[in-house]
């Protein structure tokens, strides 16, 4: 990462997801905004934005973008809201959120077995979790790739009789495999839950989408800020937003 630091004094470093659907959507979005990515993930470290050779594009896994923004190793980045909130302890403090981008939408849902006809909402889950502990002398297991968000959501509903089991692969399959009772996962349609014999609790729907964010701790030199102006302006025009307001907020939020 020190390579990035050296680059960051004279260039603006912009992180975009390296692969997957969010990569394709980001690429299309920037192209439509008139700042297409030049260069390809996997072909050397950096690409750049079309017309802005000094705005270096770093291709990184989407979750790594969150961490790099937190550490100040990128000036700007696009990632999923879910990943920003899962990977960063206090996104409100270490990042300056610029805008929701409207693509890569998905919801973080709580999935319970369809057979649980007594489970409709989080209050039911709270009761079931206590009941489960009393009857089976063990805590309800919640499989997820989002432990931080799960703790926040469960805590917000006062649910505390559970333990998180880390899920690496197909989270929704965990209840059927007997590895967990409940799952917390991102779903865009709910079809995966359904085919695994699960249903969602209706009062939790944490919506995620791609977000454009700035790092507050990155070395924001005058040159870097100047380089950010025009690409941000183009993106704001594309979204019919006020680019001057973005810039004003950005200057207020960053440590120069």
């Amino acid at each position: 990462m020190s390579l990035y630091r050296e680059t960051m004094e004279s260039r603006l470093l912009f992180g975009v997801p390296a692969k997957g659907r969010i990569f394709e959507a980001t690429e299309a979005f920037l192209r439509e905004a008139g700042v297409a990515i030049v260069g390809q993930a996997g072909r050397g470290y950096f690409g750049h934005l079309d017309g802005f050779p000094e705005v270096a594009v770093a291709f990184l896994p989407a979750s790594e973008i969150a961490l790099a923004l937190e550490r100040g190793e990128l000036h700007l980045g696009i990632s999923g809201k879910d990943l920003l909130h899962e990977n960063i302890e206090a996104p409100g403090e270490s990042l300056a959120l610029i805008e929701d981008l409207g693509f890569s939408r998905a919801d973080l849902c709580i999935g319970v077995p369809k057979s649980w006809i007594d489970a409709e909402d989080m209050d039911d889950l709270d009761d079931i979790a206590r009941d489960f502990y009393t009857k089976h002398r063990r805590l309800l297991r919640v499989a997820t790739k989002y432990p931080r968000l799960t703790r926040q959501i469960f805590g917000g509903h006062g649910v505390d009789m559970y333990r998180i089991v880390a899920s690496l692969g197909a989270t929704e399959g965990a209840p059927r495999a007997g590895l967990a009772e409940v799952v917390v996962d991102i779903t865009s349609t709910g079809a995966t839950l359904d085919s695994n014999g699960l249903k969602r609790l209706k009062d939790v729907c944490w919506s995620s989408q791609a977000q454009l964010a700035a790092s507050r701790s990155a070395p924001w030199s005058k040159a870097a800020l100047e380089l950010a102006k025009e690409p941000l302006n183009k993106i704001s025009v594309h979204l019919s937003r006020d680019g001057n307001l973005w810039l004003k907020n950005l200057i207020q939020n960053i440590k120069t």
Binding site: P113, K114, S115, W116, I117, D118, D124, D131, E181, G197
Partner: peptide, 26 residues
């Protein structure tokens, strides 16, 4: 109105009786 549930569904570690009993209590 209880939907039918059976032992071959994914039960999440609870028995059919346990689920029904809580459904009725609720």
């Amino acid at each position: 109105d209880a939907e039918p549930i059976s032992a071959d569904m994914v039960l999440g570690g609870r028995s059919v009786e346990e689920i029904r009993a809580r459904f009725e209590e609720r």
